[in-house]
Design a protein around this nucleic acid. Structure first.
Length: 864
RNA sequence: GCCCGAGUGGCGGAAUUGGUAGACGCGUUGGACUUAAAAUCCAAUUGGUAUCUAAAUACCAGUGCCGGUUCGAGUCCGGCCUCGGGUACCA
């Protein structure tokens, strides 16, 4: 017996690829290059889940395909190995994060290798390796030199539970992204990177990238560029014009409707402007606001709050004195931290004005049927002196010109994007190449790198609240190598994003010692041609990496202005479909009702306990609606699928094939283990197409003879489809095309080698192990990996006849087959069409008013 | 609320530019092989109606809902509904 045995052939070929260094990246530069990259994983303790191999299989198919198409392919992998989980584990167990990380990496590597990915393992990199983070630190020095890294006392997102600060991006709804703990604002000395300086270039750079529209949109929203004006409102009764309140607005045209002003509670002028009478109330309000977490300031407080300062400012447009309030609906961190409130044209201001009984003046005429409160759309300006009658855009132009003339304001641009908070109070991260001498930060010299992590016993923050690195006192206390003065080392570490900001460059020359990347390698391999990874990195990683890349570009270290030319997000793989029924006191209740009840029992139902009735699933034989849904895989839900189990049962080739066959790469899709049977059977059929299961030899039907016309047609249809589909990343339909080929080929009496060989090549990027094995058994000594991709020839697809569906009034009533040479002959085809019995009867019943003839497509006869 | 994306059989999904809706796979049903089972192979499988049964054929309806453009709409346009993702006092 010699049936398809994935276990045996897969380990055989994995060993072969490793010992023969089959996928070592070529050193030659004489061919076109293709750099295909996966977002490298964080090696977690739980190993790979089935979501990982989805993107990895897609890139592996591309890598293998491109090699066969004659490209030099760079297809590397590495580890984004700094991070919180290993550190939390260290706090709990005392195990050094280095050990945990090493163990996890070994496991990940083993799992990836068991899937047969064609990575160049000689280029494996690890962000926690001092030889790697030396260059992360080096790049930080470049940022520092260019004035893009600075220390600042900033109100930061402090997470007491995690004992660290978080970037804005790591805080979701006032809670930490990791762990979901509450986050409060707290001023602390932090390292900050001036990403805002690159806001415009980060925005413009998006235009030429071949990225998903949604990801570009998200980055644009995140950068949040708005164009408007900065306007100074002088304080009433003061001659000192430098004490004016500066506001940013996108609607300077509405200035005549500015009936009051609001300062953020943290605004510098609050103290100055508050009158004696109001001081107490304002102070109290500020204290309350300071204690609120972000969560309370946004989600929970729908109702506007605020306090009058007692002070007044002068509206420069009409000279009117307007009251100045303090309210936390104005954010200190956006714009100037102060606004001119225009309730007539702003919903938030309207709400506030209504609550505190402040005047409302409309300055844009709403349409007659307008019933809302604030009107924020287009219209003619009213109640606005010299702006009356203009539309919004004209009014903006005119008022800005006027303000500039009066030296009361100017055109201005504002961004939502803030500078990037770049330090963390953690152990397991890159140390900063910074010492503090006489209380001032000082960068270390390049030759001092890497600054390696000191050994500590305890990975928690110190009692004084200093980061864990402060525990390494001998390491912290040092001397300035330049002056010999006593110095202390920076004890913050870099955030996890640092290492992933430039790893794609290191892969180009992982051994290079003169810099982060060898310029010769860089100029050949840049940019990444295809980058595949999860949509959860749409903003964070991808924006930060683009920022660093542009800085490196300005330093002359890279040759492209953008790092990732094409980006694709693989869709999430959900758990198996779950059917959930609900019972209350032993009786079924419908899913909709159950939502509003207490003490409802949830029951997981089997597929055969349910059926579909109209648009809903119900308990079989009843009208009780149930929920039918695939959920995100999670440990708590217990629906996580482990790729190892799938490989044990079906083999890596089936695993790869199934992940691609499930559906379009970018789509969210539910896992279904029983569906793996389908692709597994397909591989068995492929095997039996060529191998005699009794003898284990090539079947007798495998011949050296010439293929028939029909065989060539089936083959070339397959070549055409598979080639085109790989180019479109439509792997699911490529696999379906190969299934069609095998279904057809199984019916043939003889199987000419040239046909089988070309089919095996088509299969090889998808299921490389079985393809190598069959390729060898077909009589080849070399690996299939660098053989030439089969060429598609149109001529084999042309058949002797052309089929036309015949429609009458757009409904198909028959079909005809006409000889190839008559296929374009309109008169002939129409005559044949009308002769079809089932068509003729419709013609007899009415008048033929129109004939549609689309060559090689369709005939439609319009009858009235 | 705002910005994206998606709704097609029992299920995953297919339909390159408007041109035979449901490829391919899962599941289900029937059959072949087998002492039996597994495996494998063959056939059927959107719903409905009609022709005596079967085979077969024909017809009607059908791609979330309502309307439109067109000889022809899953595909284009307008208006909704539902689900998923992102974002949210950003002035």
């Amino acid at each position: 017996m010699s049936s398809y045995n994935p276990e045996k052939i897969e380990s055989k070929w994995q060993q072969y690829w490793q010992s023969e260094k089959t996928f070592k990246t070529p050193e030659s530069r004489d061919k076109p290059k293709y750099y295909v990259l996966d977002m490298f994983p964080y090696p977690s303790g739980s190993g790979l889940h089935v979501g990982h191999p989805e993107g990895y299989t897609a890139t592996d198919i591309l890598a293998r395909y491109k090699r066969m198409k004659g490209f030099n392919v760079l297809h590397p992998i590495g580890w984004d190995a700094f991070g919180l989980p290993a550190e939390q584990y260290a706090v709990k167990t005392g195990t050094h994060p280095r050990d945990t990380t090493k163990r996890n990496i070994n496991r990940f590597r083993e799992q990836l290798q068991s899937l047969g990915f064609s990575y160049d393992w000689n280029r494996e990199i690890n962000t926690t390796d001092p030889d790697y983070y030396k260059w992360t630190q080096w790049i930080f020095l470049k940022l520092y030199e260019k004035g893009l890294a600075y220390e600042d006392d900033v109100p930061v997102n402090w997470c007491p539970e995690l004992g660290t600060v978080l970037a804005n991006e790591e805080v979701i709804d006032g809670r930490s992204e990791v762990g979901g703990f509450p986050v409060v604002k707290k001023p602390m000395r932090q390292w900050v990177l001036k990403i805002t300086e690159y806001a415009d270039r980060l925005l413009e750079g998006l235009e030429d990238l071949d990225w998903p529209q949604s990801t570009k949109d998200m980055q644009r929203n995140w950068i949040g560029k708005s164009i408007g004006a900065e306007i100074d409102f002088e304080l009433a009764g003061e001659t000192d014009s430098s004490a004016a309140i500066k506001v940013f607005t996108t609607r300077p045209d509405t200035i005549f409707g500015a009936t009051y002003m609001v300062l953020a509670p943290e605004h510098d002028l609050v103290d100055h402007i508050t009158t004696v009478d109001q001081r107490e109330a304002v102070e109290r309000y500020r204290e309350e606001a300071a204690q609120k977490s972000d969560l309370e300031r946004t989600e929970l407080s729908k109702e506007k709050t605020g306090v009058f300062t007692g002070g007044y400012a002068v509206n420069p447009a009409n000279g009117e004195e307007i009251p100045v309030w303090v309210a936390d609906y104005v954010l200190a961190t956006y714009g100037t931290g102060a606004i001119m409130a225009v309730p007539g044209q702003d919903e938030r201001d309207w709400e506030f004005a209504e609550k505190f009984d402040l005047p409302i003046v409309r300055t844009v005429q709403p349409p007659e049927d307008f019933e809302g409160k604030a009107y924020t759309k287009e219209g003619k300006t009213i109640n606005s002196g010299f702006l009356n009658g203009l539309n919004v855009e004209e009014a903006k132009q005119k008022i800005i010109a006027w303000l500039e003339e009066q030296e009361a304001g100017k055109k201005a641009i504002n961004y939502k994007l803030r500078d990037w908070l770049f330090s963390r109070q953690r152990y397991w991260g890159e140390p900063f190449p910074i010492i503090h001498v006489d209380g001032e930060p000082k960068p270390l010299d390049e030759d001092q790198l890497p600054v390696t992590l000191p050994e500590v016993e305890d990975f928690e923050p110190t009692e004084e609240g200093d980061p864990p690195l402060a525990r390494a006192e001998d390491w912290v206390k040092t001397t300035d190598p330049e002056t010999g003065k006593p110095a202390v080392r920076e004890t913050n570490t870099m955030p996890q994003w640092a290492g992933s900001c430039w790893y794609y460059l290191r892969f180009m020359s992982p051994e290079f010692e003169e810099g982060p990347v060898d310029p010769k390698a860089e100029s050949y391999w840049s940019p990444v041609d295809m980058y595949v990874g999860g949509a959860e990195h749409s903003v964070l990683h991808l924006l930060y990496a683009r920022f660093w890349h542009k800085v490196l570009y300005d330093c002359g270290l890279v040759s492209t202005s953008e790092p990732f030319q094409r980006l694709v997000h693989q869709g999430m793989i959900l758990g198996e479909m779950e059917y959930t029924g609900y019972k209350k006191e032993g009786k079924w209740v419908s899913a909709g009702e159950a939502e509003e009840m207490d003490d409802v029992e949830r029951l997981n139902l089997d597929e055969d306990q349910v059926e579909k009735k109209e648009d809903y699933f119900v308990v079989r034989g009843t009208d009780i609606k149930i929920d039918a849904k695939a959920h995100k895989m999670s440990k708590s839900r217990g629906n996580v699928v482990n790729p190892d189990d799938v490989i044990d049962r079906y083999g890596a080739d089936s695993m790869r094939l199934y992940e691609m066959f499930m559906g379009p790469l970018e789509q969210v899709k539910p896992w279904s283990t029983k569906d793996v049977d389908g692709v597994y059977r397909f591989l068995n059929r492929v095997w039996r197409l060529m191998i005699d299961e009794d003898s284990g030899e090539l079947k007798d039907s495998v011949t050296d003879g010439d293929p028939s016309r029909e065989q060539l047609k089936v083959l070339h249809e397959c070549i055409r489809k598979v080639t085109g589909d790989i180019d479109d990343l439509s792997f699911n339909t490529a696999i379906s095309a190969m299934m069609i080929f095998v279904n057809d080929a199984n019916k043939w009496e003889s199987h000419p080698k040239p046909v089988l060989e070309r089919f095996v090549k088509l299969l090889s990027p998808f299921a490389p192990h079985i393809a190598e094995e069959l390729w060898q058994r077909l009589g080849h000594e070399e690996s299939i990996a660098y053989t030439e991709w089969p060429e598609f020839k149109e001529e084999y697809l042309i058949s002797d006849t052309q089929m036309y569906p015949i429609q009458v009034n757009g409904k198909v009533r028959g079909e005809i087959h006409v000889p190839r040479e008559k296929a374009g002959d309109k008169e002939y085809v129409l005559a044949e069409a009308k002769a079809v019995e089932n068509v003729a009867k419709y013609l007899d019943d009415g008048n033929l008013v129109k004939e549609i003839f689309v060559p090689e497509r369709i005939v439609n006869l319009v009858v009235k």
